[in-house]
């Protein structure tokens, strides 16, 4: 026990200042009332679903839990059940094999709920989507493409994978609720 306490004291506090919200990440008009968001924003529960990612985005979600980003210190925590969640954080292009599971997880989250799409693949299908003749990503026999093809998305965070700061910024954007005046 002495060794553990000594190590904790020697390590000190590593937590850094979180980033500000970024309204350019917002893809849909905010659907949830400001006062509810203020309430939710103080203690946000997130359910993650990997709907087809390469696991790169998951690594950065894990990193959010480390002492540098200390996401729990901001009142944000990851929960095991969608019933406990305010927000769904989804990664990957949605594989057809995960389509039903993703929809069911979404339906199981009580309203009002927020959806954040993570990574280039979540934003537009990414490298896994074939392209049509015009060069736009299109669905395939195995992939539904971007997440908004399957469930409504509030905020989409690009990056391959997005850094923990970018993810945090996206999450804070989704809960901050108020778009800046144009």
């Amino acid at each position: 026990m002495y060794q553990i306490i000594k190590q904790i004291l020697r390590t000190g506090i590593k937590t850094e200042t979180p980033p500000d919200p970024d309204d350019t990440l917002r893809v849909e008009v905010q659907r949830i009332q400001k006062n509810i968001l203020r309430h939710v924003g103080r203690a946000l529960a997130i359910r993650c679903v990997d709907a087809g990612s390469c696991n790169g985005c998951e690594l950065e979600i894990h990193a959010l839990n480390n002492a540098y980003y200390n996401i729990e210190g901001l009142g944000i925590h990851f929960v095991a059940s969608p019933r406990h969640a305010d927000m769904l954080l989804v990664t990957g292009p949605v594989s057809r094999h995960m389509e039903t599971a993703l929809k069911r997880t979404y339906d199981a989250i009580p309203q009002p709920r927020l959806v954040v799409a993570l990574g280039d693949c979540g934003c537009d299908g990414g490298i896994f989507s074939p392209t049509d003749s015009a060069g736009n990503p299109c669905p395939s026999y195995a992939s539904c493409g971007k997440i908004s093809n399957v469930i409504p998305v509030d905020v989409a965070i690009p990056g391959c994978p997005p850094t923990p700061i970018a993810i945090l910024q996206g999450i804070l954007t989704a809960v901050s609720g108020e778009a800046k005046a144009p």
């Binding site: 390469c54 690594l59 094999h97 391959c160």
Partner: peptide, 30 residues
Amino acid sequence: LGYLHKGIEKRFESMTLAQGAKLAGRVSGD
């Protein structure tokens, strides 16, 4: 398993040797 099947091998077949490098690096991100 198989939930993450997103057609990577089929996707490779529409690519050139140069294009495939990026996809190969995303088979398993870790």
